[in-house]
Design a protein around this nucleic acid. Structure first.
Lengths: 143, 143
DNA sequence: CTGGGAATGTTATATTGTAACATCGAGATG
DNA sequence: CATCTCGATGTTACAATATAACATTCCCAG
């Protein structure tokens, strides 16, 4: 399978001199194919279907790479991983996490970014990245 | 030791019909006495000095209670716990986490709250609580 | 004083994540 | 082409965080 996603990722990595190896691409595709975030060991189970010898370190190393490249995000409050909806430059994600259905929407809201920037500045704090995870009930589940 | 903090917590719990038992107060005091966030097992080590039989569940149960009461916060990105600087009603915390010195400042910025509320609303999302953890370098370490 | 629910004790185990070191392999360089 | 080198992977073991399950104790409302 060579999805558009994979080709796009390939292009981004090449442009940066980073190597999107077969293993890394497999992990990316597993994460990207899931509607909901996956835990590292869920990814491992999936990866083992094509590569039975895979071990935790295999997955974590691939995830480290994909996180660096901004191709996936880590959801701290769920200990899980999700594809980035608009890879390009690595960027902090902002997430709406539904408690009921487990779906996660990634948003990119400049107003949140600005208010955080101002608050940090006000404390003399140099922000480098942020964890923004909003939990609640999504539109579909709220009805 | 019956710190002001303990007395205040006692009062809050009593008002809500919640029981701040000796164990729970011990855990609260351990967390509150630390300048930096503590992991559950660090808390356990400290607790064992006064109660050698304590086990992980002991600490996690006390923490669950204190979190519900809004007396401590959990820092998702650090897997650790920190006192709430202004307990009263439970509330989501916003944190500035210094990568260098490990100190954490809790802030309460209405502008961040508002921008998040608006972004959620815009997606038809009913937010119930949030994880806001801003990582970077604090004023002291930036110099 | 006693019945019942909340809190705690206790043991075991699940889940998530890393360390450490050997080996492999693809591209650079002579 | 040979081979060197460094990043990537294989492999084993283990660390760190968190929960399950069930027995026991304790508090207090009636």
């Amino acid at each position: 399978m060579s999805t558009r996603l994979a080709r796009n990722a390939e292009r981004l990595c090449r442009a940066r001199g980073a190597r999107l190896t077969r293993q890394r691409r497999s992990v990316l595709e597993i994460v990207a194919a899931s509607k909901r975030p996956l835990g590292a060991y869920e990814i491992l189970d999936a990866l083992r279907r094509e590569q039975p010898g895979a071990a935790p370190a295999t997955v974590y190393r691939a995830l480290d790479f994909l996180l660096e490249q901004g191709l996936v995000h880590r959801l701290e409050s769920l200990h899980s991983y999700i594809r980035c909806v608009h890879p390009g430059e690595p960027h902090p994600g902002q997430f709406l996490i539904c408690r009921d259905c487990g779906l996660v929407e990634e948003i990119e809201d400049p107003a949140i970014q600005r208010s955080i920037g101002r608050a940090a500045e006000h404390s003399g704090f140099q922000a480098s990245d942020e964890v923004i995870e909003i939990r609640g009930r999504c539109r579909g589940c709220a009805r």
